[in-house]
């Protein structure tokens, strides 16, 4: 079933929001306003967007260190995200998490995670909860091509399969674990084939084509909701920035490779599609862009105007009371 125009516009808006949000985070980082490790999702927006568009507010996701896109796609508030990235008291985690640990349990975003592969077992728990709730809920977990080599990946894939968990495993294959090419690190020729070892359907999709991701995920989510168990989606894409934002570039990937992938920009591809189909006009696109930029400006202002936590706030929240 083809997507309605409204759905296509929503997909585009989400991708563009992620793109503009992260461009601004990058700028604020290099302006010296954001500290620490900031891993940007620019270039990979279609995956979070296409998958999460199939999820309800009550469905749950678990993310990884490159998590801004998943937060936005699941409906997190960009003001609270920005404040967290700035280390402010008003942020999602009161400044205790930063870019790498944004979570919003209220929208079913169970957290970005600084440990590669660690989200998969946690997502098994979220999917078990969905199964116990008996309301046809599902969970999705995002991880990179590096994560598939962790033991936690294999334990979680196996557990999800034997328990028939309503869980979508989404491997965002951007072809590099930091700077190590994924083809060097994997013994099998294609990542999605690993799903077969756990008796679950696996497929590969163009991770820069949001409609293709959406359609693939739609089938998997449907299967999970109907009690058909987990699936594995490998979405191939490319990250435009280095592993994390840094003044000292550690990016050793070939520049011509990046240039080629930039020509396959997921946001521009969707833009062309919407224009060609007459879904949106140039003027409407421009209007949407400026609306998004306005919201991001507001988020940055909120972050900048917010207070830092007091030093002794560091002692709070070690335990729930």
């Amino acid at each position: 079933m083809p997507l309605e125009n409204k759905e296509l516009v929503n997909l585009y808006r989400t991708m563009l929001t992620i793109r503009r949000f992260e461009e601004r985070v990058s700028k604020e980082f290099f302006d010296g306003n954001v500290r620490g490790y900031v891993h940007l999702y620019i270039g990979e927006e279609a995956i979070a967007t296409g998958v999460c568009a199939n999820l309800l507010l009550t469905d749950r996701i678990v993310s990884h260190h490159r998590g801004h896109g998943h937060c936005i796609a699941k409906g997190a508030d960009i003001r609270l995200m920005m404040a967290e990235i700035f280390g402010k008291k008003t942020g999602y985690c009161k400044g205790k998490g930063g870019s790498m640990h944004i979570a919003d349990f209220g929208v079913g975003m169970l957290g970005a995670n600084g440990i590669v592969g660690a989200g998969l077992p946690i997502a098994c728990g979220a999917a078990t909860a969905a199964q116990l709730e008996g309301k046809n809920g599902v969970a999705a977990v995002f991880f990179g091509d590096g994560g598939v080599h962790e033991g936690e990946f294999h334990e979680a894939m196996n557990l999800a399969s034997i328990w028939k968990l309503p869980l979508i495993f989404v491997c965002e294959n951007n072809f590099y674990a930091v700077n190590t090419p994924s083809k060097y690190a994997i013994a099998i020729d294609e990542i999605y084939k690993r799903a077969a070892a756990y008796s679950m359907p696996g497929m590969v999709v163009d991770g820069n084509d949001v409609v293709a991701v959406h359609q693939a995920a739609r089938e998997m989510v449907k299967q999970a909701r109907e009690g058909g168990g987990p699936s594995f989606l490998e979405a191939r894409t490319y990250r435009w920035h280095g592993h994390f934002e840094s003044r000292m570039s550690t990016d050793s990937r070939p520049p011509e490779e990046l240039a080629a992938w930039k020509k396959k920009c997921p946001v521009e591809a969707m833009e062309r599609k919407l224009l060609a189909a007459g879904v949106l006009t140039e003027a409407q696109l421009k209007e949407m862009n400026s609306q998004i930029l306005g919201r991001i400006e507001e988020a940055v202002k909120f972050a900048k105007d917010s207070p830092f936590p007091a030093p002794e706030d560091a002692l709070e929240d070690v335990y729930s009371t």
């Binding site: 077992p121 909860a129 936690e152 196996n158």
Partner: peptide, 28 residues
């Protein structure tokens, strides 16, 4: 069966799944 679950010998999956369950409202 639904509440009393047997896991494979997968300690990481078990310890992590407890976290996901707990974060989703189930005491584990």
């Amino acid at each position: 069966e639904a509440r009393i679950r047997v896991t494979p010998v997968s300690e990481s999956a078990m310890v992590g799944a407890a976290i996901g369950l707990a974060g989703s409202g189930y005491r584990t």
